[in-house]
């Protein structure tokens, strides 16, 4: 069964409605005419080779075009019923959306302050409240046991994999409605990756997750539905299992997951 985006009406279970999204960098088209819906509380996977527009898609969801010169976005994106190109307070939108970048960014603050940053931006001042948030988020990101005795040391001095989990903890500390993960497992070892994947499966109860990944098997393990991006176009949107039992419409999708190219 193939789902190519339900009508534009804001159904109650549609979290993000993307219509005719085209992204350009100067004259280069990074993504062309993408229309899709991301449903509430699903993990929506995006697979595809490098340079297929996956990361640009995530950047558009978070309105990061405003700080990337030359990045131009056409089409509309509705987030929980709001057209994100028309809202007046971008910062409020971004606070609802957590982002994990492919390369870990441990801010040069203490581990504690890294995770407490988002709550503090939201005005949480009480130490006891912050303590609870920091511990919970670090637990969920599978980092707590490794750092609980040195929360005061610099986050930027952690190892790559630890920094990535710190980044995930930071994104979770925003208590987001939408979590964007851009190839989060690049710098993380397989065992830790599995632990984080388990956390993501649990998180699905509370958060809608968009998972960009290079690993077809990771999409299979996690994503309810998956989009296949190829050469700046969205080739396929289907239930993830459909890619593996041949129910996809475009032959290129099956070729890709079976490793015949890309």
């Amino acid at each position: 069964m193939v789902d190519v985006g339900s009508p534009a009406s804001v159904a109650s279970d549609v979290k993000v409605a993307v219509r005719d999204l085209t992204i350009r960098y100067g004259s280069h088209v990074a993504l062309r005419d993408v229309t899709l819906d991301i449903r509430e509380n699903e993990i929506f996977g995006i697979i595809g080779p490098a340079n297929s527009g996956k990361t640009s898609f995530l950047r558009a969801l978070n309105r990061m075009d405003t700080f990337t010169t030359e990045m131009a976005v056409d089409g509309s994106i509705e987030f929980a019923g709001h057209d994100i190109n028309k809202i007046k307070n971008l910062y409020a939108l971004r606070k609802r959306i957590g982002v994990v970048f492919p390369l870990p960014v441990g801010l040069p603050l203490s581990i504690y302050d890294n995770v407490a940053l988002a709550p503090r931006l939201n005005g949480v001042r009480k130490r006891s409240e912050l303590d609870v948030i920091v511990e919970r988020c670090l637990q969920r990101a599978a980092l707590w046991d490794e750092v609980k005795d040195r929360l005061k040391s610099l986050g930027s001095l952690l190892s790559g994999g630890q920094q990535q989990r710190l980044t995930i903890a930071r994104a979770l500390s925003q208590d987001p409605d939408l979590l964007l993960l851009d190839e989060f497992s690049i710098a993380v070892d397989p065992v830790t990756t599995m632990r984080i994947e388990d956390v993501l499966k649990e998180l699905k109860q509370e958060v809608t997750i968009v998972l960009v990944t290079n690993l077809v098997q990771q999409a299979r393990r996690l994503a309810d539905r998956t989009a296949f991006f190829l050469m700046s176009e969205c080739v396929e949107i289907a239930e993830t299992e459909a890619y593996f039992d041949g129910r996809v419409q475009d032959p290129r999708s099956r070729d890709y997951v079976e490793g015949r190219f890309g």
């Binding site: 978070n62 990061m64 700080f67 971008l90 910062y91 409020a92 939108l93 971004r94 606070k95 609802r96 959306i97 957590g98 982002v99 970048f101 390369l103 960014v105 801010l107 040069p108 603050l109 940053l117 988002a118 503090r120 931006l121 980044t167 930071r170 994104a171 925003q174």
Partner: peptide, 21 residues
């Protein structure tokens, strides 16, 4: 710049980025 971008993606304003990061 990755620091600024990370903070901006979290919804920090320009001044919050300067002050806190």
């Amino acid at each position: 710049d990755t620091y600024r971008e990370a903070a901006e993606a979290m919804g920090a304003t320009r001044w919050q980025i300067v002050w806190r990061v």
